[in-house]
Design a protein around this nucleic acid. Structure first.
Lengths: 358, 358
DNA sequence: TTGTATGCGTTATCAA
DNA sequence: TTGATAACGCATACAA
């Protein structure tokens, strides 16, 4: 990544000025303040620049001087490639990039691999502000973001004093799902949730781990289920909960298999993401279990595919979430931080839930 | 976006060193070369940093000094938000971000609104290299990319001497579609293509405009159709071709309407993207025209949805395309530019094409 | 293990 | 309309 066709040291503003026998200021103005010099001189400068292979003012040096990078950074709890693989992340990006376009700033996707404690990418991102999306409570990458001291908006994370945040009421949203299934008469229900900590771990989750979950959204969604169950007189400790590190269809399928292994008489499986729910559906189909007759299934997020397939789920406005995050970060007249935006969710009953058979 | 809780001028490496009565070098080492100083001193420095609110070495200043930004830029022929809306762009990003993750660099999405001649974002992006994706031949943003003189890989664009490129054989790929329909017996065929120039323009396209199309992929796909038709003895100038600026379902629907207006006896509609094809299908359904019995439809790209819906299309390996672009740009041992990667495509006959009636 | 000196390439300020 | 000067904040070669 360093093949340059040049010989001599690359031209700079200074070398160009020297060559022309004029000052650096004038050369700088030729690029940044065209009206500050005669069109004639400007043309001469630009031509000399071309002749010398001067590519124009160095962006980094300019940023150093102007204290503007012209970009904001997005950090999420995973590799960069996750951001363009997960439908929820993509939808969030849709809203966020809309605001970037409006403000004419770039968006830097910053790597934050949960397997790596390597925070360098966060510390060395040349940006004017950060959006942190769905990160674990003590993720060092998150701490690095906060430590940068640049304007920041956090999403789907616990409130941090003085920092703007955007989110939903996960607990309340998930209660709707539980109440729906309970009202239908389900009692033997399994739960498949996403990662609860930064370490790879798949398997059953005890109450202790549920309460200590490091991911705000997962913790609160489980809490919503728990309180609804308890209120309905269903012993929560009888409800099998399994965790999957990856939020993938495959993970959902294996979670379903594990749940049915724990209790083959389950009449419903609740998941904390639509993607996991797709996996559950897949596994049930493989086992020739009918949905919803044999097993009811629910998701969370309300992504397009889920709605199209009639999955019972909860819609959260992820595009709007990204948009609001962008607005908070990019607004013209900076406000003091610490604002809190809570977006509404909507329970979407679908065709994957019904009353259990007798 | 500028709310800082600080009073005095923000701390720097120098001010911190001064405060501690040590040299800047040592403070720098505390961050970048921990093994170069005693753990004790290092701790003292880091603590003082925290106390003074010093967020660590400034990334921009560091980049200026080290000549590394730790990020690459992606420029495509549209706003940033397009990159996360179009399924092909998303898939390309999937491959590209994989390589970013591997190389531990960030990805900067650079705005290049076709409506704006504003090239500043490209000129001022702090990056170590560029990927240019599907840009118009004389797009000023593309010229700005090339002018930057940083390592660059171009995708789905005409070869530029000395610049690495990745692409497919659009002409050949599209020929397969034409030959398929011709073999089935279709003769009255309409074509819906994507934008052929940077200016907004929807409507019929004459041969002149086809030949002068500024978008490499569109130009070649049309050429592929043309040569196949001519070879089969079908007069190309009888084939209605309509253009749509937006690559959207709505655009596809309106293109279908326009084509049927031009020739209500069409037995097949060819599109140059799956997304447009979805729109065509939608419009045909609205008109109670059956596919493929009344009208056959083809797409291009082979996106997931298209395959799932049985659209007759051409699959191109966009994920691999992004991956290869990333590899060329990020490889450890830089090679001289000018390499050319041409990826294979695959014609995928589906259920949306059949012989015309009678 | 620590410090000194220098330069990275630019823009802002102010004076001419 | 143009130019001189002074930062911007840091890392590196080299000396101590």
């Amino acid at each position: 990544m360093d093949r340059s066709p040049r010989r001599r040291p690359p031209a700079t503003l200074a070398s160009l000025a020297a060559e022309l026998g004029i000052s650096r200021t004038t050369v700088s103005n030729a690029y940044n303040r065209p009206e500050q010099l005669s069109a004639q001189l400007r043309t001469r400068i630009l031509e000399a620049a071309r002749a010398l292979g001067y590519p124009g003012p160095d962006p980094v040096a300019r940023s150093l001087r102007t204290k503007r990078a012209g970009a904001i950074g997005l950090v999420l709890a995973d590799k960069v490639s996750y951001a363009v693989r997960d439908p929820v992340a993509i939808a969030f990006l849709e809203g966020l990039t809309e605001e970037c376009d409006r403000a004419r700033v770039g968006l830097l996707l910053v790597p934050a691999d949960p397997d790596a404690e390597d925070v360098a990418a966060v510390a060395s991102a040349s940006i004017d502000g950060f959006v942190a999306f769905a990160m674990a409570d003590e993720d060092p990458h998150l701490e690095a973001v906060l430590a940068r001291g640049v304007p920041t908006v956090i999403c789907d994370q616990p409130v941090v004093p003085g920092v703007d945040s955007v989110g939903i009421d996960d607990e309340q949203a998930m209660r709707a799902v539980a109440e729906h299934l309970l009202a239908l008469g389900h009692r033997r229900i399994g739960v498949a949730c996403m990662r609860l900590g930064r370490a790879h771990r798949d398997g059953p989750v005890d109450l202790e781990r549920q309460l200590r979950a490091r991911y705000h959204a997962q913790r609160n969604r489980l809490a919503g289920l728990r309180s609804a169950f308890v209120e309905a007189g269903v012993a929560w400790d009888r409800i099998p909960v399994v965790e999957r590190f990856d939020n993938s269809v495959e993970a959902g399928a294996s979670a379903a298999a594990e749940l049915l292994g724990l209790d083959s008489g389950l009449t419903a499986i609740i998941t904390t993401s639509d993607v996991l729910a797709f996996g559950v559906l897949q596994e049930l189909e493989r086992r020739h279990q009918r949905v919803p007759q044999d097993v009811a299934v629910t998701g969370f997020d309300g992504v397009k595919d889920a709605v199209a397939r009639g999955l019972t789920t909860v819609h959260q406005p992820f595009v709007e979430k990204g948009r609001r995050a962008g607005q908070l970060l990019l607004e013209k007249n900076p406000q003091p931080g610490g604002r809190r935006v809570v977006l509404p969710t909507e329970f979407l009953p679908g065709s994957t839930t019904a009353a259990p058979r007798t």
